[in-house]
């Protein structure tokens, strides 16, 4: 097995890492957009909008991400629609992320004092205007740290996409291991790369949290 030098293993893992990063970005940005829409529905005080939103969130928070990936990958195929691992992984992770971000952000919105809602209502602003100009600018400040913190979960979540055949960091590790039979080395390297992606983010989230606590 000496024809697989350490460098080749690392090079291949790093090549696969770009797909992990890309999938994370798609999930995070897509999930952020969907999450923002859901946040508006969830906090709208309109019952028929809130209930389905709540069900959606409960579903994605209450079932394993792996099951969601399977449902998208195999389930949609039942309807005769061809789903690539890319599509399934991107979509499942986006929706999964959106459910968690909505709940994180809802907590931040609810942390804004009621008086802010009343004051903005009393000058005739409607719900969307209140959110956009009064509530969200304040909620965003407190949302940054937990949001950045959650991005770590998204990156780690992409590892599950390996199971439906999406070649990202974990899948590449498995493939390389199958060729080299050096599982400890390979998976140690995989873990190290994940750590290098995640640690700066969680460190940054911690720092932001500290900063905001001082400002308050």
């Amino acid at each position: 097995m000496s024809d697989f030098s350490l460098w080749i293993i690392v090079k291949n893992l790093l090549w696969a890492t770009q797909w992990t990063i890309l999938l994370s970005l798609i999930a995070f940005v897509g999930g952020g957009i969907v999450g923002l829409v859901l946040l508006f529905l969830r906090t709208s005080q309109v019952k028929w909008l809130e209930v389905p939103t709540k069900l959606y969130i409960e579903f994605f928070q209450g079932t394993p991400l792996l099951m969601q990936l399977f449902l998208f990958f195999f389930g949609v195929a039942l309807f005769g629609i061809e789903v690539s691992p890319w599509m399934a992984a991107g979509l499942a992770l986006t929706l999964w992320t959106s459910a968690f971000l909505t709940e994180i952000w809802r907590g931040c919105v609810e942390a804004i004092p009621k008086g802010q809602w009343e004051a903005s209502a009393s000058v005739a602003m409607n719900y969307v205007e209140q959110m956009r100009y009064v509530i969200l600018p304040q909620a965003m400040r407190i949302a940054i740290a937990p949001t950045v913190g959650f991005s770590v979960q998204v990156i780690k979540g992409t590892a599950l996409a390996s199971i439906i055949g999406f070649v990202e960091l974990t899948k590449a590790g498995t493939m390389i291991n199958n060729a080299t039979f050096r599982p400890f080395l390979v998976y140690a390297l995989v873990a190290l790369i994940y750590f290098c992606l995640c640690f700066p983010l969680s460190w940054y989230a911690k720092r932001l949290e500290g900063k905001l606590n001082v400002a308050r």
Binding site: P113, Q116, A119, S122, A124
Partner: peptide
Amino acid sequence: MRELRRHVGMVFQQFNLFPH
């Protein structure tokens, strides 16, 4: 209600200014 609130102003005990 929007039309109503344009003509009926309110000042609160706790000021409720927008801090940002």
